[in-house]
């Protein structure tokens, strides 16, 4: 009983409420004419689409840099990789992997500078990360207009230069992961094997990394930087590594998202993708200085489940679209909850 109580306390009421809300939605779904199998399929798909971006939160949380509101930098690196891959006319799996490879140097460079900055402003990381992300996106907006891309599927037809706001990847690597070994059951249920395997691979690599010497040091830096320093760990270096990894995962995450979604979205599209990733990991039970693979898994499923189920179920139920409002309140409420939660560091 006591264990149960502390479990609830650690897990936090908001998450439990969200969990039961989601369960209730699934139970109600058949009664309002929403197909469960289609819903499950949808949730799985969206989970795969978003999980790597949520995973990108882990290293920075673990190393004590807080929630990565600057994930946009990684997303932009991914967009650069994706557009370059299209520019080079890489198709199929080659195109997809090419995009990741091309995005890697960008994500390392961006991440390195971003980490330099964050190490200078310890304690104020989150607000600054947010604005660095915004201004970088705006800077890239200008770049998208003037970079010399010329693949006709990507540039504005009438001007002949400047990238389109949305670029279809249909002829390149649309659903390359989703369709890999996909299992179709019935008319509505598709199990996106490739996508989930890919996510699992990254989660496993992250798991391995967190158990390595560097990963251990990083966790200690986040848990108690003074302890880590006293044990001979270079705190700034660990933080830098974590930021670079996070940025890289952001880049991979957006490419995975695009292959499933079907479009590369440029210009200001990356900014609204950051908050859901932050909210998801918090819903999964992470705090602003501790996160695990379980948090990523649970959080992404809960949050994406909510995003999938509320429009269909609530709308059929109330005949009105409340899902947006619920989405806003839940995701921001969750971040707010994490920020204002008294951290139980018994110093």
């Amino acid at each position: 009983m006591r264990n149960f109580k502390t479990f609830i306390q650690d897990f936090g009421w908001p998450r439990i409420i969200i969990f039961f809300f989601l369960v209730a939605l699934f139970i109600m779904a058949p009664f309002v004419g929403v197909r469960l199998d289609a819903s499950f399929s949808d949730v799985l798909n969206r989970f795969g689409q978003n999980a790597i971006m949520v995973l990108a939160m882990v290293p920075m949380i673990q190393s004590g840099c807080g929630l990565n509101f600057g994930l946009a930098l990684g997303l932009v690196a991914g967009l650069l990789g994706a557009t370059l891959s299209l520019q080079l006319e890489l198709h199929g799996m080659l195109g997809f992997l090419g995009a990741i490879v091309l995005a890697t140097p960008f994500s390392i460079i961006f991440g390195w500078f971003y980490a330099k900055l964050l190490n200078k402003v310890k304690g104020e990381e989150m607000t600054i990360a947010m604005y660095v992300g915004f201004s970088f996106i705006m800077f890239m907006c200008i770049m998208w207009l003037i970079l010399p891309y010329n693949n006709p599927t990507m540039v504005w037809g009438y001007a002949g230069k400047g990238l389109r706001t949305t670029i279809s990847v249909e002829n390149y690597w649309l659903k390359i992961l989703n369709n890999f070994l996909a299992i179709k059951i019935g008319q509505f249920f598709v199990f996106p094997t490739g996508l989930l395997l890919f996510v699992a691979l990254f989660a496993f690599l992250m798991w391995l990394f967190l158990r390595s010497k560097t990963g251990t040091a990083m966790t200690a830096v986040g848990s108690n930087p003074d302890f880590a320093r006293a044990s001979g760990v270079d705190v700034d270096k660990m933080r830098t590594i974590s930021v670079i990894i996070s940025t890289f995962l952001g880049a991979v995450g957006i490419i995975v998202y695009e292959q499933s979604f079907g479009f590369i979205q440029l210009y200001t599209a990356p900014s609204p993708m950051v908050f859901p990733a932050v909210a998801a990991i918090l819903i999964g039970g992470a705090s602003i200085n501790k996160a695990s693979m379980v948090n990523v898994l649970v959080g992404t499923i809960l949050f994406q489940g909510l995003l999938t189920m509320t429009p269909s179920v609530i709308n059929s139920l109330l005949q009105t679209d409340m899902s947006e409002v619920i989405r806003i309140i839940v995701s921001n409420g969750m971040i707010l909850y994490a920020l204002t939660r008294k951290i139980k560091v018994s110093k």
């Binding site: 402003v121 310890k122 104020e124 604005y131 201004s135 705006m138 800077f139 907006c141 200008i142 207009l145």
Partner: peptide
């Protein structure tokens, strides 16, 4: 559009720079 993006870039950039300078 470039001017439009530019002014937003500057707006966000100013906030970021001020916060960085302050923290630093």
């Amino acid at each position: 559009m470039i001017g439009e993006y530019f002014r937003q870039f500057i707006g966000y950039g100013v906030i970021a720079i001020s916060l960085v300078l302050y923290a630093w």
